[in-house]
């Protein structure tokens, strides 16, 4: 599992885990994120059950496992959080922040010890030590109950499936050539995103944020100007194309 430090400051660190070499080939590649503060750590979209061992092994290079006190699931998909049952055994005292809409569904993955903290539709903020994290509504992008995570200090937006790209194995972790990258994103957004109205709403919210990195759950991370380029591109794109 490859690990890259996205941000480092006195108060906290952002780490990306991805491009696991041992991932079974038919499983979609995912990026997992961890924010480590002084005494806590939160994992954002910790991933599927098949990735659990690799993730756990990678994580303990950076924090004692007990320091992970929070989990976040942007939505209910298996690639996001089907590992929940195993994290439940690993971190019985942790809290899971996830859309209220999916509580009854996510519990099917096994959530007996971890506390489910339902996120209201309008979103909310939490504080880990000195770090504020905002859960920004991203409903229907693509899931009907869905959130992005914004860190105003580090200026990082974890966008979940928004900005996802289907890339070949071993592709770089950052977008190098935006125009070329567009081809790897188009199908994903057209087919997985259902609503143009929802898309506009999310773009409106996100345009108000100061973003240095936009970090999706699949594909590559957008830096600086590419973030705005992405928002402009998405704004123009017709989504919900599954209906003939």
């Amino acid at each position: 599992m490859k690990v890259v430090k996205l941000h480092e400051s006195r108060s906290h660190e952002w780490l990306v885990f991805g491009r696991d070499e041992e991932r079974p080939s038919k499983i979609i590649d995912t990026n997992q994120y961890m924010i480590k503060t002084t005494n806590h750590a939160i994992m954002l979209d910790p991933g599927g059950i098949e990735l659990f061992s690799a993730m756990l092994a990678a994580v303990v290079h950076h924090v004692p496992v007990q320091q992970i006190t929070h989990l976040f699931a942007s939505h209910q998909d298996p690639d996001i959080i089907s590992s929940l049952g195993l994290w439940d055994k690993t971190l019985p005292h942790a809290e899971l922040h996830a859309p209220w809409l999916w509580e009854g569904f996510l519990r099917h993955f096994g959530c007996n010890s971890i506390k489910y903290n339902p996120l209201p539709d309008e979103g909310k903020s939490i504080r880990l030590d000195e770090v504020e994290l905002q859960f920004i509504p991203a409903h229907y992008m693509h899931s009907s109950g869905n959130f992005s995570v914004y860190d105003p200090q580090a200026k990082i937006l974890m966008s979940g499936d928004i900005g996802a790209a289907l890339l070949p194995d071993g592709a770089p972790l950052f977008v190098e050539d935006f125009d070329a990258h567009v081809d790897k994103m188009r199908l994903f957004h057209q087919r997985w995103m259902p609503s143009n109205r929802a898309k506009k709403d999310w773009i409106r919210r996100v345009r108000q944020l100061d973003i240095k990195y936009m970090a999706p759950q699949h594909g590559a991370i957008f830096r600086d100007r590419d973030v705005v380029r992405f928002l402009d591109w998405l704004d123009e794109l017709e989504v919900g194309t599954g209906i003939a």
Partner: peptide
């Protein structure tokens, strides 16, 4: 679960906080 934890343990032998997995 036992297998997956064992695998994580094996893969994190050199990790700074690898021993925090032992009790789990």
């Amino acid at each position: 679960a036992h297998e997956r934890f064992k695998k994580a343990q094996e893969r994190s032998k050199t990790a700074a906080f690898g021993d925090t997995l032992d009790s789990i």
